[in-house]
Amino acid sequence: MGFFSFLILGLLAGAIAKLILPGKQGGGWFVTLLLGIVGAMLGGWLGGLIFNVNLQGFFNLSTWLLAIGGSILVLLIYGMIAGRRADK
């Protein structure tokens, strides 16, 4: 998968993860892009480690599920960190 397709995958995976998670997550489209890219990388790494599956192609279902799952995980961690900062 190319660099730009990975950026698009990260942006869309981050946006889908924000839609799936309840509540209001902070950050605009740039934060969504960054968290989506980190989530896609994390999902691909965990998928390869646990399920022996990797991010193969842009239109592959396992690629999207791993990227969205990783983005959800990253958004949850980001929410816990940003939530602590906002409470202070």
Rank of each mutant, 00 (worst) to 15 (best):
S62L: 02
G28M: 05
I37W: 02
W29N: 14
F51Y: 13
N54I: 07
I77T: 10
P22N: 11
L61H: 10
L11E: 05
K24Q: 13
L21Y: 06
A40H: 02
V53H: 03
A15Y: 13
G28K: 05
A40S: 15
L61A: 14
I16S: 04
W45A: 11
L33S: 06
G83E: 05
L76Y: 09
G27A: 10
G83W: 02
F59K: 11
I8Q: 09
L46F: 03
F51I: 10
P22G: 09
A40T: 13
L19H: 05
V74C: 01
W29I: 15
A86P: 00
I81R: 03
A13M: 06
T32P: 01
L76M: 11
S62A: 14
L42D: 06
V38D: 01
W45H: 05
F51E: 10
V53P: 00
I20G: 01
W64F: 03
G48Y: 02
R84F: 14
W64C: 08
A67T: 08
G47E: 00
G70K: 08
F6Q: 11
G10V: 02
L61T: 11
F30S: 07
W45N: 06
G27H: 07
A86L: 12
G69N: 04
A82D: 15
I81S: 06
F3V: 13
L19V: 07
L42I: 09
M1Y: 10
L66N: 10
G57L: 08
N60S: 07
T63P: 00
F4W: 15
N52V: 12
K88S: 10
I20C: 06
L34Q: 10
I68W: 06
K88E: 10
L65P: 00
M41C: 04
G28W: 04
L73G: 12
G79R: 07
R85P: 04
L19E: 15
W45R: 08
F58G: 10
I20A: 13
G36V: 05
L46N: 07
A15G: 14
I50R: 02
G28A: 08
M41E: 03
L61V: 12
G57W: 11
F3G: 09
G48R: 13
L75D: 14
K24N: 12
G36L: 00
Q56N: 14
K88T: 12
N60H: 15
V74K: 00
I72E: 00
I37Y: 03
K24E: 10
T32E: 11
L55T: 01
L66Q: 14
S5P: 05
G57R: 13
V53A: 06
R85L: 15
Q56L: 13
F30D: 12
G36F: 00
K24C: 05
G70F: 01
R85V: 14
G69C: 02
G23R: 08
T32K: 02
V38P: 02
T63L: 03
G2C: 08
L12M: 13
L33H: 03
S62W: 13
F3Q: 06
W45V: 11
G27S: 12
I72C: 14
A67D: 08
Y78K: 04
L75H: 14
A86F: 09
L76F: 13
L19P: 00
G14V: 06
D87W: 08
F58D: 07
L66A: 08
W29S: 14
G47W: 00
L75P: 01
S5V: 11
K88Q: 13
W64V: 07
F59T: 15
L65Q: 11
L75N: 15
L11P: 01
A17N: 02
D87H: 07
L34R: 02
